[in-house]
Amino acid sequence: MPESTIPLSGRMIRHPLPPRDSQGMPTPREPALRTTGLRKAFGDHLAVDDIHLTVPAGSFYGLVGPNGAGKTTTLAMAVGLLRPDAGSAEIFGVDVWRDTVQAKGLIGVLPDGNAMPERLTGREVLTYLGLLRGLQPAVVAERTDELLQILELDSAERTLVIEYSTGMRKKIGLAVALLHAPRLLVLDEPFEAVDPVSAATIRTILRRFAANGGSVIISSHVMALVEQVCDHVGVISDGHVVAAGPLADVRGAGTLEDAFVDLVGARAGGTEGLAWLTSS
């Protein structure tokens, strides 16, 4: 794939093979995700421009930015669902665009707004995808039971996914991402439209996942939430990374929200005009 090699000083640089441990798995010293110079244009609009991100293994990483900043586009390119115009992405040292199959085995993904196998029930979706990934039927059955129960989807046994509410769709998407016990979770807006109780459940699950050595990347524009769960933060604005690093470094002395408003140069509007909007 020509997209995965970047021409540097006139010749193609091939990345060395990632270091492996005795089982042939990449060693944990590699970052969970590293993107190099990711770029994507839609027509004339440059959605993502030269994004360099490093997500350390074992971290809980929050990708924040205003609407339309390029978060979803970046994550889609990082997990292999959108072909970048330039740049590369590595998962634990495995090039997403060169060793696609191996990279896919390492990650669990929750993209934003994509369809599911709509005419299956939640249990059927998990069973189908588990078996398709080659998990043992008994393992699939056990994990499906646990996931449905813990995400409180087990009461909707006969409901097809097409009938799910937005929050339920998020939860079944999360279950799909967790099912094969990946090493890295990439979740686009996992808390959007989820009720507070379910959100607390999801937070707990993700914290446990991270505590047990897993790595998590979430995108969000709810600063308070990112501040609460993440230990690393990346701020994207207008297709660029404007700040990245450990949470404490990025937010400095104030709150993350203050730092964010400073970084993206935004100004909260809403004070001018609208004089007619009065009920007196």
Partner: peptide, 15 residues
């Protein structure tokens, strides 16, 4: 007809 559900096939190795 299935729409973007194709992403699941694409993120499953060898599916």
């Amino acid at each position: 007809a299935d729409g973007t559900a194709l992403w699941l096939t694409l993120v499953t190795p060898g599916a």
